[in-house]
Write a protein that binds this DNA or RNA. Sequence first.
DNA 1: GTCTATAAACCGATAGAC
DNA 2: GTCTATCGGTTTATAGAC
Lengths: 217, 217
Amino acid sequence: MTARIKDEARRRLAAQGAQQLSVRAVARELGMASSTVYRYFPSREHLVTALTHDAHDTLGRCAERALDSASGAAAVDRWNAVCRAVRTWALLHPHEYVLVYGPPALPKAAPAAVGPAARLARTLLRVASDAHAGDVPDEPPAGRPCAGVGADTGRPAAELSCGLPADHTTCLTAVMAQLLGLVAFEVLGQFDHVVQAREEFFAHTCAGFARQAGIGV
Amino acid sequence: MTARIKDEARRRLAAQGAQQLSVRAVARELGMASSTVYRYFPSREHLVTALTHDAHDTLGRCAERALDSASGAAAVDRWNAVCRAVRTWALLHPHEYVLVYGPPALPKAAPAAVGPAARLARTLLRVASDAHAGDVPDEPPAGRPCAGVGADTGRPAAELSCGLPADHTTCLTAVMAQLLGLVAFEVLGQFDHVVQAREEFFAHTCAGFARQAGIGV
DNA sequence: GTCTATAAACCGATAGAC
DNA sequence: GTCTATCGGTTTATAGAC
C-alpha cells in the first residue's frame, strides 16, 4: 500500500518536480482522501525522504547490475559500463536524479546522505580497486595529490575497505564528482543548444575519466 | 527602485531558495503592498527571469575580472584564476548559482539561456585560445574526439570567433561542464562529509581540467 | 482504515480609491 | 505610485464520524 503511494508520488515527481510535490495531489490522483495518505506517511517530509532513499537505492542497484553484466570485461570497459548505466538511469528518471544530486528538496538541513550514496560510490571504487589489483597494472593517476586532500578522501575508501592507495582515491573522488556533475548538467538541459551528439560526447568524456582515475587500457 | 526589489528578492532567494520565492514575501519584507511590486515586475515569472539574467551577468563579469587580474600570467595560472573565481562566487551566492545551473526555477520551458551563459563560456574559451596561439605551444588534448561531437561543439566556438581547432573546443566543452558540475556539487553540499580540504581538492581537480583542455604549463 | 469537514495558513494577481 | 480589499486558488495537517 505504501508502495502504491510512492509509485504515484514518483509519477507526480516526474510531472512537476520535487518542490511541487504535494500530498493532496498524490491522494487526488490516487482517488483517495488526502488524510488517508497521512496514515502511511506522517508528513510530506517523510514521503519525500522515502523517495530520496529509494532513488539512492535504485541508482546504486542499477550501477551494480551494470558492473555485474560487464563482469569479465577489461577494467576500462567495466568503468564505462557503470558510467553509462548512471547516465541512462538519470535520463530515464531525471527528477529522481535531481532529488538525489540536486538542490535539497527539504528546507531542513541535509541529512548527510552519506549512507545511501555509498552504494554507488562503492561500485565505482570497486572498479578502480580491481583495476589496481589486476594483472594489467594501472598507470599512476595524473597529477600530484597534495597531502591534505589524500588524507580525508582516503578515509571513505578505507571505510569501504578497498585496498586502494590514497592518491588513487583522491583522483577517484574528483572523478566521481565530475561524473555526477556532468550527468546532472545533461539532465538539467544545459546541453540543449550546445551539444547534439550527447551520447558520443559522454563516451568521450568518460574515457577521460578513466584515464584520470588511473584505470588503464 | 526595481533595484531595491531585486535586492530584497535576492535576500529571500538566499533565505529560502528560488522555488519558494514569493512576490508577497518580498513586498512584506520591504514594507510595501504586494500590488506595488507588480508595478515594477508584471509577474513573479518576470522577477525570477530578471534575477536569473543578473546572476548570469554577475558571474560572467566576475570571471572576466579574474582573467584581467591575471593578465600577464602563464596560461595555466590564468585558467586557474578563472576557475577559482567561479567557485568563489558560487560559494558566496549559492542560490544564485543554483538559479543559473540548477533545475529550472520556472515551470515553463527553459528559455535556452545560451545568450547570457555565453559570457562565462567566452571567458574560458579566451584562455584556451590564447594558450593555443601563445608562444608556449599547448599539448594536443588527450583522447580522440569523434567527428560528430567535434562538429557541433565546434559551432559555439566559431560563433564566439575563437581560432580554436574543433577537437580542442570539444575538450573544452567537456571541461566546462565538469567544472560547473563540480562547483554545483560542492555548492549543494555533496562534499559535506566526504571532503574536508575542499580548496586544495578543487585546485587539484582544476589542474586536471587544464591538462584535459590542453592548456600547457 | 477510509471518509467528510475544517482549520489556518499561504500564494498570484486584479480592481479601484486616493 | 502606493495603498486597501478582495477573488480564487493552493497547501499541510487535524478532528472526528463511520
